[in-house]
């Protein structure tokens, strides 16, 4: 129809808004608020494409025994793509093991950033609060920048921040469950009281979960399985890229209050009268 204006792309309008609002942690600014982990991908090629589609600038890796067959290709892939590495301490059950793993990661990858993960058992993979607090203290003493993977417990999150964590990363639901954010109220409480960035980590199942995390006020979202084990990881990675950006914009835009009754958005005055 001739009277329609030319098509405008929403991206062109939203990109400057997003660019003016970087995610900053430990003094480093990232354009993307999505941290995509590398866990669970069946192949490195597929992983590379998914990372690219996600737009992530920071990714997690695990430290495992070197095998000549695999020869550091993941590390090379990340270096090639210019994605910063956040090593984790996945699989550690004690502060001692987590500290040693972090030391190995710092040495191997030449970064003092560490995603601290100290789990209690293999069924829940939930963080062990006592060991987690102990490890945070030890790592901060040793000069690490600790990204603490924590339960969705506002008290524990606060304690980890007081111990010197540079970011707290509460779980939405247990790792790999895809159950979403089980306790949004706790996440809001953590956000309200935190003075360091809050990263929603674990439990994300689909794009709307990530958008919700951002709407609750989180500074970023960390996920891996939701992309790497999706039927189409590249498409899902793109979905998360948009969801995180959308959630962030919505959080800052100031949503309307919830109302009990309807409120017409079209004026009642000036209606045509039909006899």
């Amino acid at each position: 129809m001739g009277i329609q204006p030319e098509t405008r792309t929403g991206g062109a309008l939203s990109e400057p808004l997003l660019a003016a609002d970087p995610f900053t942690v430990d003094g480093v600014a990232f354009g993307s608020r999505l941290i995509m982990g590398t866990g669970g991908a069946p192949s490195l090629d597929g992983l590379g494409e998914a990372l690219e589609a996600s737009g992530t600038e920071l990714t997690t890796v695990a430290m495992r025994r070197f095998s000549p067959a695999e020869q550091g290709s993941l590390f090379e892939l990340l270096v090639e793509k210019g994605i910063r590495v956040l090593p984790n301490t996945a699989g550690c059950f004690t502060a001692r093991d987590a500290v040693l793993t972090a030391e190995l990661a710092r040495e191997a990858l030449e970064t003092d950033w560490v995603k601290l993960e100290v789990i209690a058992d293999e069924t829940t993979l939930l963080p062990d609060p006592i060991e987690l607090a102990d490890a945070t203290e030890q790592l901060v003493d040793r000069g690490f920048k600790v990204f603490a993977y924590t339960n969705d417990d506002p008290v524990l999150a606060r304690r980890l921040e007081q111990l010197g964590a540079v970011a707290v990363m509460p779980l939405g639901a247990p790792i790999g469950t895809g159950l979403g954010i089980l306790n949004p109220h706790n996440i809001e409480l953590i956000v309200a009281r935190a003075e360091v960035p809050v990263v929603l980590d674990a439990g994300i199942g689909t794009a709307s979960d990530a958008a919700l995390a951002m709407e609750l006020g989180c500074d970023a979202v960390l996920l891996a399985t939701a992309v790497t084990r999706a039927q189409d990881p590249v498409r899902m990675a793109a979905a998360f890229r948009h969801a995180v950006a959308a959630g962030r914009l919505a959080a800052q835009a100031g949503r309307i209050p919830r109302r009990e009754h309807a409120l017409a958005s079209s004026p009642m005055e000036g209606r045509a009268q039909f006899l």
Partner: peptide
């Protein structure tokens, strides 16, 4: 630390762990 690798000899019975970055969340 890597700077000490050259000056660190191995002895009988030593247990060495050699690790690198692998996929993980």
């Amino acid at each position: 630390p890597r700077v000490r690798w050259a000056a660190t000899p191995l002895a009988a019975g030593d247990a060495v762990e050699l690790v690198t970055a692998m996929q993980g969340g």
